[in-house]
Design a protein around this nucleic acid. Structure first.
Lengths: 127, 127
DNA sequence: CAGGATCCCCAATGATACTG
DNA sequence: CAGTATCATTGGGGATCCTG
């Protein structure tokens, strides 16, 4: 069971911020991509993750690095070369996130069915 | 392996939206709370989840209901009584999300350590 | 009690340009 | 290449009031 001192349901517990980094829009994609590929450069991540801006990628990577999820390795060469990979802690987090991805992929038909039925129910009751 | 037709790394794939609902700020808290408690009323959820507004709770619950994650049962009484619980699909999702919560709780010391070290590294290099 | 409707605003996000 | 700095935008999100 979880420590009583770390309560993510408490608005002011710092764990809430970490949870938000882990589950953030770009954070989840970065984690899963790094879990699959092992190590990627900044520009590789940018290309792999559709729609992410440089700013958001850099910002999200920094948050994840600070939380100990992502490892950042700078190779002192010109032009610059920076590698990103998951820490041990990050791998554990990424695996959980990846479970969500698999769930969506594996049971996609159920998601679509639920959405269609919901929309039909809504459309059927004007007021 | 996952269907090639469901690619969350593709900006325009509808699965991206579902992933964002599942991992949204309030979505993760709702899922875990319902996983723990089974069934809760609107006001119970509101009280259980620190800092959520009525608007965001209603809005997030609707998104999760549409995706087939949350089951909404209305009891036709006065005053109104509405129960929320997880569907089978929702339970699978919630378990994955709960893994993240446990990770944060169990390894919180590592998160804090990483943050402190990151901040020290930053402070050590003025420019 | 469960939410719908409104108003409002700040912060997250993105586009662009620039630098080591 | 790997970012940082700046600026513009908007819509997420909250507060409030109202209703079945």
């Amino acid at each position: 069971m979880e420590s009583a001192l770390v309560d993510v349901f408490d608005m002011n517990c710092p764990s809430r911020a970490v949870m938000e980094h882990l589950s953030s829009r770009w954070g989840v994609l970065i984690q899963v991509m790094l879990l699959r590929e092992g190590t990627l450069r900044f520009s590789e991540l940018r290309r792999a993750i559709g729609g992410v801006s440089e700013k958001m990628l850099a910002q999200t990577l920094q948050a994840l690095e600070r939380d100990g999820i992502v490892r950042r390795v700078v190779h002192p060469v010109i032009p610059p070369h920076v590698d990103y990979s998951l820490t041990d802690l990050g791998e554990a987090a990424a695996k959980a996130v990846n479970t969500l991805f698999d769930l969506i992929g594996d049971r996609w038909a159920e998601f679509e069915k639920a959405q269609v039925e919901y929309d039909q129910r809504k459309a059927a009751q004007p007021l």
